[in-house]
Computed example of a mutant assay.
Amino acid sequence: MDNLKHLLNKRIHVKITPEICLDGIFTDIGDGIVVVFDGQRYLYIPLVHVHKIKLSKSNEEISEPNGFLLTKQTESISYHTILTNAKMLFIEIHVLGNQSLYGYITDVLNDYFVFYSPIYKTMYISLDHLKWLTPCNQNITPYTLNKEFLPVRPSITIASASWKAQLKKLENNFVVFDMGEGSDKIGLLKKIENNLIELIAANGETIHLNLTHIKSVHVP
């Protein structure tokens, strides 16, 4: 991390995926995470997804960083503390493709977190696949829903400590992986063994998926 500190408070260009690049002021760095202010919001980006960081060539003005932070100025940050500090706050997260999810982190476990989305309800998201998160305006609610329509509370079901163990608890349930990206990501989760998922599709076909590459799961 020390070899990036000379870029702090400078305008940088960050490549996260071949399709996602961000420009902004590099405001902080910690264990497994970097923070960039893009002129409107703070983006918390796990280092595992940073392909490249360099000084930006953009001449577009960016205002001085302001807005809602997930840390105190004196706090040393890490990927885990950012997720913990974001619990029960209205946030936007980016997990796959060009889709953003809006909602609330309700629990943070060893290698995944539990996320409540008004659209998908309770979701389980692998820490390995979160591209970035940003806090939203805390004076509004997702889709301007009244709070009585947002049952944001920890599930009465105790979440397992690990991603694999949590998914094994969903065996013999209908599941949607990766928000249904592709027809082979929806079906009956038959079993998980040796990091391979056995999924039964609607037409009865058996599909085997690599658990390592699954980004999110929810039960419809």
Rank of each mutant, 00 (worst) to 15 (best):
I140G: 04
F68G: 09
L8T: 00
K10P: 05
L127S: 13
D28N: 14
L83R: 11
D38K: 04
S126A: 13
N173Y: 14
L7V: 04
E60C: 05
R41L: 07
L209S: 02
F174A: 10
E193N: 15
Q166P: 10
M88R: 12
S78R: 04
I200G: 04
G67E: 10
H208F: 10
I62S: 02
T141I: 07
H213R: 12
A86R: 03
N137I: 09
E19K: 14
P135G: 03
G67Q: 11
F90R: 11
V95L: 07
V219C: 07
Q99S: 04
I45R: 02
P151C: 10
P46L: 03
I186M: 08
V34E: 01
S56F: 00
I53N: 00
A202Q: 12
K191L: 14
S183G: 09
P46V: 08
I105T: 05
L130F: 01
P65L: 03
P151Q: 11
D2N: 15
V219N: 14
L101H: 15
N146G: 07
K52C: 07
N137H: 09
L189W: 00
K168A: 10
P18V: 04
L209I: 14
N59E: 08
G187I: 02
E75M: 05
M179C: 14
I93W: 09
I105S: 02
Q40S: 13
P151S: 06
S126W: 01
K131S: 00
P18Q: 08
I91V: 14
V152H: 06
G204C: 08
H94N: 12
I192C: 10
P118N: 11
Y120E: 15
H13R: 05
P65T: 14
